[in-house]
Write a protein that binds this DNA or RNA. Structure first.
Length: 449
RNA sequence: GGUUCCAUAGCCAAGUUGGUAAGGCAAAGGACUGCAAAUCCUCAACCUGCGGUUCGAAUCCGCAUGGAACCUCCA
């Protein structure tokens, strides 16, 4: 099999580009994680699933992916929520981190290379900010430190905005301390309430945009990584500001490829906490399987918006169950007939991987899965089926679904199952339908029939 | 107002350099079956509209209509 050429859409360049890692076989991926002041809504997991898929795919074709996502556990909203609940910021964020990780498990997300928390990088952030002050790309205003956006001639490249338009479109900013309304806070002094960190640049807390750049630099120990991602709404200002700081500090754009994942919508409108139309991920994952939620996200190109409906999730539950029961049944049948494990069908594998290599074209990749499923079902029904072919199909199906992050678990076949199956078939031959129906109940409950 | 993006069958959705449209869901009919479930087969598109370029456009260009996002915290 030829080495697979991967193509990915890069927001920075505004086009699909050949993906060439900086230090193959290593690939670095960082995507912005949640601010943990609350239960996250389902939309927060679309990037998670997308970059998990990208990780699994790149690993499958021979790369060694280091995928990293952060927790923003220092933030104004966290401070406020902690005050409201009479908890410390740490107690609050730890609680919601745990809730988030519970969802990661249900969604079958691969363990990340690292999951840094902003609160653990404060000193590095402070010294990063100090550097920016020293090279005059940052300035103090009152007790706060701001980034001087005018210092970056490339500002706006990612979000395709120009500074003049941004200034004219900017809302009236009461903060007159800033040189320009576009300047953003790198460090905020904390007054009386809320968590504060004692650092050489003062007692306060870092701004969100600084947190991510510093964590990227620190975790990967390099100024430029392969892929930086997140939701579409992070393009501006968050990622734009990360790039600006990285340019000012390291003279790099921070990541070679910038990937942005489309929104989850409810009734055609973006799901967001401020709009009050959030559906919490933990609730959805209680009603629907992780497989179903994955299939739902995977049903649309990662860059396009996707509309949330319970009906859609219901239908993917059915699809997921169908996948499971077919694979389980076929696996049991092969075991009963003592057929050894099959081989991965190279042509199917290649067709699947090539589809994903095309900027994660999951829709085309999934056609391989559905085609195999159909053949597995057909072979399962036949009396004189080519069992080796069936074994190969099951093997390939499992391989492919694993890359998609789908997980099919079922109990191994027991001796009792074997006995029951034989008795069932004998009863049917003898037209003892009362007995066969009873055994059928038992066997189908286990998914053997 | 500025900047991006989208518009394909009842629903979801693919369509890489233009050559007459993958797949999934739902519905219907059929096959199989002692019955049921499951499964398999069959079945759907004037590609939002109007112009233009071309031998030929869902695919390129323009206009219109409809929708979304960003410009403020947001995955």
């Amino acid at each position: 099999m030829e080495p697979i050429k991967v193509r990915l859409y890069d927001t920075y360049e505004g086009k699909v580009r050949d993906f060439i890692p900086l230090n193959p076989p290593e690939v670095d991926i960082y995507y912005c994680g949640p601010t943990v002041y609350n239960y996250v809504h389902l939309g927060n997991f679309r990037p998670t699933v997308t970059f998990d898929l990208l990780t699994r795919f790149l690993n499958a074709i021979g790369y060694q992916v280091k995928c990293v996502s952060n927790y923003t556990d220092i933030d104004d909203k966290i401070i406020k929520a902690a005050l409201d609940k009479h908890e410390t910021e740490k107690e609050l964020s730890e609680f919601y981190i745990k809730a988030y990780e519970d969802c990661l498990g249900k969604l079958n997300i691969l363990p990340l290379y690292d999951h840094p928390k902003a609160s653990e990088y404060i000193n590095k952030m402070a010294s990063f900010i100090k550097d920016l002050e020293d090279n005059h790309t940052a300035y103090q205003a009152g007790d706060d430190v701001y980034f001087r956006v005018n210092s970056d001639p490339t500002y706006g490249q990612l979000s395709k905005q120009n500074i003049a338009d941004l200034v004219s479109g900017a809302r009236i900013d009461v903060n007159t301390k800033k040189e320009s309304p576009l300047d953003f806070a790198l460090w905020k002094m904390t007054d009386d309430e809320g968590i504060k960190f004692d650092t050489p640049i003062g007692k306060g807390r870092p701004g969100w945009h600084t947190e991510c750049v510093v964590m990227v630099n620190s975790v990967f120990k390099k100024p430029l990584i392969d892929i930086h991602g997140g939701g579409f709404d992070l393009k501006f200002p968050h990622h734009e500001n990360e790039i600006a700081q990285s340019e000012a500090h390291n003279h790099t754009r921070l990541a070679n490829y910038w990937m942005h994942v489309g929104f989850l919508l409810t009734n055609g409108v973006k799901m967001s906490k401020s709009l009050g139309n959030s559906i919490l991920a933990k609730d959805v994952l209680q009603r629907h399987s992780g497989n179903a939620v994955r299939l739902f996200f995977l049903s649309t190109n990662y860059r396009a918006p996707i509309n949330y409906t319970e009906e859609a999730l219901d239908s993917f539950d059915k699809v997921a169950n169908r996948y499971l029961s077919s694979v389980r049944k076929a696996t049991y049948q092969l075991q009963l007939k003592n057929i050894k494990e099959g081989q991965i069908i190279t042509s199917d594998k290649e067709e699947f991987l090539l589809a994903l290599a095309d900027d994660l074209n999951v829709a085309n990749a999934m056609t391989v899965l559905d085609r195999e499923l159909k053949e597995i079902n057909t072979l399962s029904m036949k009396k004189d089926a080519d069992l080796e072919r069936e074994a190969d199909l099951v093997k390939t199906f499992t391989y492919i679904s694993d890359i998609l992050g789908l997980k099919f678990v079922f109990d191994p076949l027991t001796d009792e199952d074997r006995v029951n199956l034989q008795a069932y078939e004998e009863a049917r031959v003898n037209k003892d339908y009362a007995k066969s129906d009873e055994l059928r109940k038992v066997l189908s409950a286990k998914g053997i029939l």
